[in-house]
Design a protein around this nucleic acid. Sequence first.
DNA 1: AAGAGATACCTCGAACACGAGGTATGGGTC
DNA 2: GACCCATACCTCGTGTTCGAGGTATCTCTT
Lengths: 169, 169
Amino acid sequence: MGFLADAPLHGYELRRRVAALTGHVRPIADGTLYPTIKRMERAGLLRRDVQAGQMAAPRHVLTLSPAGQAELLRQLRAPDELFITDENRWFTLLAFLRHLDDPAAQGAVLRRRLTFLTQPASFFWDGDRPLRANDFPDDPFRRGLFRIATATSRTEIAWLREMLTSLAR
Amino acid sequence: MGFLADAPLHGYELRRRVAALTGHVRPIADGTLYPTIKRMERAGLLRRDVQAGQMAAPRHVLTLSPAGQAELLRQLRAPDELFITDENRWFTLLAFLRHLDDPAAQGAVLRRRLTFLTQPASFFWDGDRPLRANDFPDDPFRRGLFRIATATSRTEIAWLREMLTSLAR
DNA sequence: AAGAGATACCTCGAACACGAGGTATGGGTC
DNA sequence: GACCCATACCTCGTGTTCGAGGTATCTCTT
């Protein structure tokens, strides 16, 4: 829906755009995409205009309907918790948060993410004791994992704080 | 399988440990975990020892069988492409790569990831032209997304290079 | 002129995941 | 003594996702 809100597209191109989000979003399989398009069309979330001729096969240009736009905004404004806590989902949310044309609502979403990120957390535990990188002297891989996660987290927290200040202005 | 290779656990604890990987791995639902355990038990990948009495409900302590260990090693040694390219999967792979007790094989896996990360790539395209952060003057969210992704990527590439040098020694 | 490969859509069965529901017991509180 | 919560396991229906297969056309190479 985000990509369609950017511009009307045909299915194949949509699939390519999602695939380009490599590393953060899994590519969508054919068998997932086309049935989903049908479902969304039936639900009135998008319109399909067949554009015969020009290319190999007739393209079905998909346009987000007003109902689809509303649904996108609803999901951007009040995303499920998974969209805040899961890397992949948060990534897609961020990619299209611009469409939520309301600084206060955007700020509220960013604040939810900031709250989540600043919660004390650890990936591994020994009973109730959170384990840190130093607790894995024999596992350079987990130490690396901590290093990468910390760097990401720090960068994101700094960015979120900046954004929240500039959105408040 | 990785957590069970660390130590035998009961299902509930397993679920908690996966849930602790917050932000990188989605929590597993009850309805997913227990049928999966059954399937793996039937497949001979793990053994179940019922430990009655001590706690509220009898715990089923799960132990990875030799076949399960072999399967884990197989998957660590030759992971599907998704485990290299998808953040979530790569994260879990890294968390248990120590179990693959062979520096050469570990190095090969890290090299696959490094190759993937150093490929020129972009999340968004205008036709064939890759779009960079500067191409989104009106979208601070996508600029942030680039900033975070770049920081993560840089940190990880640096770590991978270090690891590969130290593994080669 | 043939064939490979990209474009573009589609279907179907099998596998998988989830949420809602259920059972049962131990520990703590009011 | 009643109640709630955490622990610990389980099932089932519904919905999702995938992969393998299929169709057809256009373009580029050999």
